[in-house]
Structure formats: structure tokens, C-alpha cells
Design a protein around this nucleic acid. Structure first.
Length: 552
RNA sequence: GCCCCCGUAGCUCAGUGGACAGAGCAACUGCCUUCUAAGCAGUGGGUCGUCCGUUCGAAUCGGACCGGGGGUACCA
């Protein structure tokens, strides 16, 4: 990572300045390294501004003390003081050129790191109740969870992707009863729909599937037997629907964890008694409540209902306790819709009560998605919305555009998904621009191969500023990936991809790669080959296909 | 009422306390005998919701307020 290298460089300069007596001995953890905002520099440090107060001298003087103490480095071409006390550094062309080899040698793993040091991390995402098809909003958290998993994996974590299936409780029961209603209605038997039953048209279709596969064989069963059967069929059909659309988007899981496993293993009772023995459980109004000692109850902490049924909360506590204390995850990242935010503090205090550090469980909450067609938002109606279902969105704009636009926004922000832009097969559409840039390079490399130009080794002596500027962008990629992994914010990836693709397209128009000049040709093939690699790696982290050609 | 998220260019959105706030789209002006014009070059466009505060320095941190959205179940 380049910022790390610059930090090392600057730290040496700082220590040297201190040992020369130019600066007082002050511990400064954060050197304030950032990509420079001015064109004259590549990277800047705000260290002098940060030190000024403690050192009791002006930022300019501090900057000068550091600059004169800076070691010779083949990476840094120049180091200057600027503005109110910035240290501005410019990368040397020689060093930048040498990074082409680094990119080529690292290949598909360029951008990755060992940040995670094999730490065992679980990413739990989607985990939508198996009671209906996935909506566009679910798609956002699915893509986010998938890409976070890819980023963590590339950053040296040992990642398990898990889907938690709530295959027991009220919601699946309601689905079963709703299916039973439609099923029996088809045979002329009128059983009322439960008041909170699932109203969507898909329930009728699913009942039709059951009739197609099993005809009337459930008609004569008792109501209890029917409910059990229809819950089973409902879960099965729902999971198939969910798996199908996720598979279209190339999203898969290492493990599907069924809530029933917990109940069957007695994990619910066990976790309640553990909480109880530590004084975190109270019983009142016929129910069993979780109470975080020393904290205000928020009133939503029922573990066991008056009916004797366990709540979702207690199952989720047992589930997460299992992740940390039985399955050995050091970190768990749960990606879910922001409508569940009220759940977060309860889970954290419950885990603390069980002796698990709350910070080990991180939530990534994503806000709603509004689909926009013809400039008009689609109504979020269960029935009318033509693009409400994820499967319909993917069928319309394709998995690449779906992923790109979902990723391009910070999870904390609500977003509008512009169908018209995503459908667009022209340069107006960023995802096309990026994939096209990749295909364009492959096309150049293909031609170079046909002409036998790829076997000759490049000396890289002919590179111009246009070539170097492309490398300048590419060397930032590992820092981008690192920031995504650190902050669990993948939205930097699409922006970087667009910047690199745009820079390449510009380069392509001003610099001919394959020309009569063999030396320039060889050198530029190295440059565009590196651009292809970095674009491919960035797209791969986003789960977007990097095509070898684009066809009209 | 209380809790969470958001408010940055006409639109959609980036922007680890630092220098003149950026991108894409839209608008306008140019560019196809050339490795894919599915593209490029350029122009215009801003009280960073408002007001206080912290700081050498605030779009960024704190508080209040104003807008928009979501949550506030013995549902999950």
C-alpha cells in the first residue's frame, strides 16, 4: 500500500529531524497522509499542522525541518512545503514505472493484502424470511454482503458467508396458512386467510405449484397436519426462489443455517438459563424478558412470549452466541436492512451479557432503494410495482448494472435506482464505460498477440507522462481496497473503476498503443496490460464480469 | 414523543478535521480515412439545509432548529 510506504518514509524523516534536535520529541501516531488535492503533488501530509501546537513552532518551520531530514528515496521525486504547512510529495517516474512489474507479478491478487492475518470472520447477509421472493431492497443488502465478503477475502481474512433461515415461528406459519387457504380454495374448500396472512399474488402461484406436484393428496389431512405440510412446502419454494435470483447475480453462500437447528439442539433454553444465572432475566406479565443490567430497558426485550413460544430475539441471541463461542468466529458482520436498526443495541447488550465483546459483532445497515422509471419513482406496493422484485430488475438491466449501481452508493444513504440509465447500452452508462474499457484493452492485446508483439520484453524506457499518469492512478488501488475492508464500505470501488476507465479512454484517444515504433509499442502494451489487470481486479471484487469483447 | 439514516451543482451522488469542494448524468461547443465514436476534448453551473459552538483550520466534530425517509410488536 502506497500510503503505508509514504508513512514509513515520513516517519524516518520525522525521527531524523527529532534526533537532529530540529523538532521536539513528540509522539505523533497519525501522520495525516492523504492523496494530494493539488495537481503539483501526489501525496500530502498534514503532519506539520498537527504538530504545530505541541511543538510550539510554526507549521512552515516544522515542515522545513522534516523536509531537510528526509532520506533519499527512489520513490519520492520531490518533497516540498506548501500552503499553510502541508508537506507535498511527488512520486518519481522511475518508481511509478517499476510498479508495472509489481502489478504484473501480483496479477489477480494485486490490490489484496494481509490486513486480516487469517482472522476468522463470518459475513451474514440476506437472511430474508423464506416467505416470499426477494425485493429490490433485499438485493442491495445481498450485493453489499457479497462484495464485503469478496473484499475481506482479498484482504487476508478467512471468510464464511452465511444465510440464516428463519424456518420457524410466526412468519413461516402465516405463509403455510396462506398457502393452505389457496390450496383448499382450489378444491372448493373455504378456509379463511389469516388476518396477517401473505397477500401477494405469488402465494397463489406457489399454491398452484403444490397442486401441480401433489394434486389433492393433502385435502383430507387434519388442519394441523396441513399447516405443517404447507409450511414445509412454502419454505422449500421460497428458498428455491431466493437461491435462483441470487445465483443469477452470482451470489452464493458457504452455509445455510436453519433456525430450527438451534431449537432442536436446545440452544434456546441454554442461552436463557445462562442469561438467567447471571441475572439478566426477569419474568413479568407471564413472559420472560431480557434486561441488561445497568442499562435502560427499551421495552422490546421479550425472550419468551406469554404463549411459551420463544421470540426471534432469543433465537438470534443463541444464534450469535453459537457463532462466537462454538464456531470460533473472531468477528461477525451482519448486513441487513436499516429497518432492523432497533435490533442492534439489544444484540450488543445481550452478547456483552454472555461475555462476548460487543464490538466483535458489526452491523452494516443499508437504507432503502427507490426504483425510478421515466423519472418517476415506482410505488413500493406489493402488487403493482413492476420492478419491485429483484428478479425483475436483474432481468431488465442485467446483473452487472444491478451490482454497479447498488454498490455506488454509501449503504447509509437511501438511493434511487435509475432504470433508464442502467438499461442504457451507451457511454452514458458508467458500468458500460468500465466494461468497455476492459474489452478495448483485451482487443488491443489480442491484436498484439496476433502480430507476435507480446513475447518481447519491454524496457519501459519510452514511457511518457500520459503513461505514467495511468500508473499513478493504478497504484492507489491497494489503498482503495484496504479502505473498503477497514470501513466495510465497498462504494469506493465503483468510483475508482470509473476513474481508471475514464483515464484509460482518454489515454486511448491520445496515445496509440500499437505503432511502428517497436519500443513504444512494447512499453505501452505493458501499461495497458496493467490497466486491464487492475480494472479486472476491481470488477472482480464488485462481482462484475470483465468481458473480453463487447458486441453491439 | 423517543431512536436511526440522509440533506453537497438542474438530477443522482462521492468527498479518512486541512490548501481553489469533485464525478456521472442533463445542458452547450467541438471531434469519426485511426488499436471498437459503446468513445474523447472543452464550457457553463455551488449561501456544502439554517443558526450557534469547538479548532490555527469545519462539507467533515458537538448542540439546537428546519426539511425528507425509516423504526418504535409478547412480527421477523
Amino acid at each position: 500500500m502506497i500510503t503505508r510506504k509514504i508513512e514509513e518514509y515520513l516517519r524516518i524523516a520525522l525521527r531524523e529531524a527529532q534526533s537532529r534536535g530540529l523538532l521536539p520529541e513528540i509522539d505523533q501516531i497519525d501522520l495525516g497522509i492523504e492523496k494530494s488535492r493539488v495537481p503539483e503533488a501526489d501525496y500530502s501530509s498534514t503532519l506539520p499542522l498537527r504538530l504545530a501546537r505541541a511543538a510550539g513552532s510554526s507549521p512552515i518551520d516544522i515542515a522545513n525541518a522534516i523536509i531537510v531530514s528526509a532520506p533519499k528515496s527512489e520513490m519520492i521525486a520531490s518533497i516540498d512545503v506548501a500552503g499553510p504547512g502541508f508537506i507535498n510529495m511527488r512520486l518519481s517516474d522511475v518508481w511509478l514505472t517499476s510498479q508495472l512489474d509489481v502489478i504484473a507479478q501480483n496479477g489477480d491478487s494485486f490490490g489484496g493484502s494481509n490486513l486480516g492475518d487469517r482472522t476468522k470472520v463470518q459475513v451474514e447477509f440476506v437472511s430474508v424470511n423464506p416467505t416470499g421472493p426477494l425485493t429490490v431492497g433485499h438485493g442491495r443488502s445481498a450485493i453489499l454482503g457479497d462484495v464485503i465478503s469478496r473484499i475481506m477475502l482479498a484482504s487476508g481474512y478467512e471468510v464464511q458467508r452465511e444465510y440464516y433461515v428463519n424456518d420457524t415461528g410466526n412468519q413461516v406459519d402465516l405463509l403455510g396458512q396462506s398457502l393452505r387457504h389457496h390450496y383448499l380454495a382450489a378444491f372448493g374448500i373455504d378456509v379463511p386467510m389469516p388476518s396477517a396472512g401473505y397477500q401477494g399474488e405469488y402465494v397463489r402461484e406457489w399454491a398452484g405449484e403444490i397442486i401441480r406436484d401433489h394434486a389433492d393428496k393433502y385435502v383430507d389431512l387434519s388442519a394441523d397436519e396441513q399447516t405443517i405440510i404447507f409450511v414445509e412446502h412454502g419454505i422449500e419454494i421460497a428458498l428455491k426462489s431466493i437461491r435462483d435470483v441470487l445465483s443469477e447475480m452470482d451470489i452464493s453462500f458457504d452455509n445455510w443455517f436453519f433456525e430450527r437447528q438451534l431449537h432442536n439442539a436446545g440452544a434456546i433454553d441454554e442461552v436463557i438459563s445462562r442469561l438467567d444465572s447471571s441475572g439478566y432475566v426477569v419474568r413479568r406479565e407471564g413472559a420472560t424478558w431480557f434486561t441488561a443490567a445497568g442499562r435502560d430497558d427499551d421495552g422490546g426485550n421479550v425472550l419468551v412470549k406469554r404463549t411459551g413460544d420463544p421470540t426471534y430475539l432469543v433465537a438470534d441471541i443463541a444464534y450469535h452466541q453459537d457463532k462466537f463461542q462454538n464456531r470460533g468466529f473472531m468477528r461477525v458482520i451482519d448486513v441487513m436492512g436499516a429497518d432492523h436498526h432497533g435490533h442492534v443495541p439489544r444484540m450488543h447488550s445481550a452478547l456483552e451479557a454472555l461475555g462476548v465483546e460487543a464490538s466483535a459483532l458489526q452491523y452494516v445497515l443499508c437504507q432503502m432503494v427507490h426504483v425510478v422509471v421515466d423519472g418517476q419513482p415506482i410505488k413500493q406496493s406489493k402488487r403493482s410495482g413492476e420492478f419491485e422484485l429483484l428478479s425483475e430488475l436483474v432481468a431488465d438491466v442485467g446483473p452487472e448494472a444491478t451490482r454497479y449501481f447498488m454498490l455506488a452508493r454509501d449503504a447509509n444513504s437511501q438511493m434511487e435506482f435509475d432504470i433508464d440509465l442502467a438499461r442504457n447500452q451507451t457511454d452514458d452508462n458508467p458500468v458500460h464505460k468500465i466494461r468497455y474499457a476492459h474489452a478495448r484493452i483485451v482487443s488491443i492485446l489480442r491484436r498484439a498477440e496476433q502480430e507476435g508483439l507480446l513475447n518481447q520484453s519491454a524496457e519501459l524506457g519510452s514511457l511518457q507522462s500520459a503513461d505514467i499518469d495511468l500508473i499513478r492512478i493504478m497504484v492507489r488501488f491497494p489503498d482503495i481496497v484496504n479502505a473498503c475492508a477497514r470501513d466495510l464500505e465497498p462504494h469506493h470501488l465503483p468510483h475508482f473503476a470509473l476513474e481508471l476507465a475514464g483515464a484509460f479512454n482518454s489515454y486511448y484517444h491520445s496515445c496509440k498503443v500499437i505503432s511502428e515504433n517497436q519500443q513504444i509499442t512494447r512499453d505501452r502494451l505493458e501499461v495497458v496490460g496493467a490497466v486491464r489487470q487492475v480494472l479486472a481486479n476491481c470488477l472482480s471484487l464488485m462481482g462484475i464480469d470483465a468481458p473480453d469483447e463487447m458486441r453491439r
